[in-house]
Design a protein around this nucleic acid. Structure first.
Length: 357
DNA sequence: GATCCGTGGAT
DNA sequence: TATCCAAGGAT
């Protein structure tokens, strides 16, 4: 009985996905891909990867870029701290390592945005080092292959899976092996309805032998997410002939959508139209005025990781301002230069397409 | 060590 | 429509 890695690597040679960062000569390109792929699907990453490599082709180019340009390039990808950490790490690599990634998993892991998985992935894929890289795909595949009953998102389960990953790593072949398991997890050993009929490792799979592949991996239940309603103020003022400016607010440097720009908004409990003015006034100390009976300019629903929002964007005016530091007038045509989350970008697009402006 | 951090595709 | 969950890391 051969080890399953032989069958896996044969399958990989014939069936591996062709991805923009594969076979790339630049270690930096692999680094870009690994950061973007954290908790993010390949299809979502590909267009961002191409754009990023044009904007910031090298570590040095990234290190020299402004944070706003970095965040704007990341806009829409989510988990924006990845962009900030990557930017910081690029600067460190340029200053401390002469622009080259260290060939050492512990040193790699010290860089912001690089944890245990990414360090292993970079070490194996870039340098061919014998390091496992346990991501969501490998956890699922291993949980089935070895019929792991411990929850994969528990401390005990993770510890066991890393042990399995170390023990099964074929020496000298970690780069292909790690990526092969990722491709297998993405194409064959998928979360729901795994395609065991065409799986090269079906004969090795303990969960399948016991007919419980659908019950693996075991995962600890997550709590249900709350739903909140927000009222956002779209405050537009005319600057000149056919020229307008919009009032935007910059979010705090920590927490959700840290540092991103948004339309001034406040949480409301019930009827958004009825509570908007007082909520916005309390939140921003602006004297806001809203035309009565006017429907929202846009209603946007969105789910974040841990809660859901419905945002009603109202046309508002301000009669007097004691503008806080976070508030700023932005010319309508410059709206794209200010990185926003999905909800506020949707509102921004709505305004720009509005024939009134 | 549990919680927070975005978005979108699949089912 | 609602739920799951991704090439995880930081706090």
């Amino acid at each position: 009985m051969h080890h399953f890695s032989t069958r896996l690597l044969n399958w990989y040679n014939k069936n591996k996905r062709t991805l923009p960062w594969r076979g790339h000569r630049s270690p930096y390109a692999v680094w870009v891909s690994e950061i973007m792929l954290q908790q993010t699907r390949v299809e979502a990453v590909i267009p961002y990867f191409r754009k990023w490599m044009k904007l910031f082709p090298t570590v040095r180019a990234l290190a020299k870029a402004s944070e706003r340009d970095v965040l704007t390039a990341w806009e829409g990808l989510g988990y924006y701290s990845r962009a900030r950490n990557f930017h910081k790490a690029a600067k460190i690599v340029v200053e401390k390592y002469g622009g080259k990634l260290p060939r050492d998993v512990d040193e790699l892991q010290k860089l912001p945005g690089i944890g245990r998985y990414t360090a292993g992935a970079l070490a194996s894929i870039i340098f061919g080092m014998d390091e496992p890289a346990l991501d969501g795909n490998l956890k699922r595949v291993y949980a089935r292959l070895f019929d792991v009953k411990k929850p994969v998102n528990s401390t005990e389960g993770e510890k066991l899976l890393w042990k399995i990953a170390h023990e099964n790593l074929p020496k000298g072949k970690a780069a292909d092996f790690n990526q092969a398991l990722m491709d297998l997890g993405a194409m064959i050993c998928v979360p729901k309805n795994p395609r065991c009929e065409v799986c090269p490792l079906a004969r090795d799979c303990k969960a399948k032998a016991r007919g419980v592949q659908h019950l693996r991996p075991v995962r600890m239940a997550k709590k249900t997410i709350p739903h909140h309603i927000y009222a956002a103020a779209v405050i537009v003022a005319q600057v000149g002939n056919l020229r307008y400016k919009v009032l935007l607010a910059q979010r705090p440097s920590k927490g959700l959508l840290a540092g991103m720009w948004e339309f001034p908004n406040a949480r409301v409990e019930g009827d958004p139209a009825g509570e908007a003015v007082s909520a916005l006034r309390a939140a921003y100390r602006l004297t806001v005025r809203m035309k009565r009976g006017l429907p929202p300019l846009a209603v946007v629903e969105h789910t974040y990781s841990h809660f859901r929002v419905t945002v009603h964007a109202f046309r508002c005016e301000i009669s007097s301002t004691t503008m806080g530091d976070s508030l700023r007038w932005i010319r309508l045509k410059d709206l794209d230069k200010y990185p926003m989350g999905k909800v506020d970008r949707a509102i921004a697009r709505k305004i720009k397409s509005d024939s009134h402006f």
